[in-house]
Design a protein around this nucleic acid. Structure first.
Lengths: 127, 127
DNA sequence: CAGGATCCACATCGATACTG
DNA sequence: CAGTATCGATGTGGATCCTG
């Protein structure tokens, strides 16, 4: 997502969407939600995402002030992610979005496919 | 945005984001907001977006039940777009997002750049 | 006027291999 | 363990030209 192109027309909304407008960020926020998680735990919980992309997303979210990254200088390395106040403040809005989707949901088999977490399979069959 | 890959882990949120998770859709919703707009009017108001992409986005939003497309068989052609109930229901959430962004906004010159509508320039200089 | 069709450039994603 | 580096495939956006 080309962030810089988002900042136009409706500025605050543009910026908001640049902070969470990616595929993964809202989901990452929901996954971290209430407890610190290590990188590996995140990777397992959202294992449809490659580790590289997960890293990228987390870095951007850190830069956007959504998550806190704590690196422990240990062997083996340990890194824990948690939500900032800003990230936490996003939760109610995400819940509203879920409600909204649930309420106005029209079942469209072409779009819904499956909701399994094992997307490898989905991806292959869908694409 | 590969919509099909969004439907995992957190389903309702995934679907919600697939409906408005693109760069432009939230902005389009805000622009249409309270009155019907013709295609050309939309294109002018969001003139950073190419007409092709605007068309694509509107088509997807129509399929997602966010907007209504009314085509008048006239010469010259006229097409008017308006929000569905579902699209309207999204407005308060978008306003919350704006509030959220405004409240937690941290000024980061590397990210904010400009909020001008003339993004050609922005793009060139940024990239 | 509102687009459809093409073509091209560029980003982004995913897989793999490697490192401290 | 938690990344980084690299490469290739895929997707997406923009520009241009064409049509009813």
């Amino acid at each position: 997502m080309k962030k810089n192109e988002l900042m136009q027309y409706s500025c605050p909304l543009g910026k908001a969407m640049s902070a969470l407008g990616s595929k993964w960020k809202p989901i990452i926020v929901l996954v971290i939600k209430d407890r610190k998680l290590r990188f590996g735990e995140l990777a397992v919980r959202i294992h449809v995402i490659s580790r590289k992309v997960l890293t990228d997303q987390l870095r951007e979210m850190e830069a956007d002030g959504l998550v806190i990254r704590e690196e422990f200088k240990e062997i083996p390395p340990r890194v824990e992610y948690s939500l900032t106040e800003k990230g936490l403040a996003l939760l109610p809005i995400l819940y509203l979005l879920e409600e909204w989707e649930t309420k106005y949901h029209v079942y469209d088999p072409d779009k819904v496919k499956e909701c399994g977490v094992n997307s490898k399979k989905i991806k292959k069959t869908v694409v």
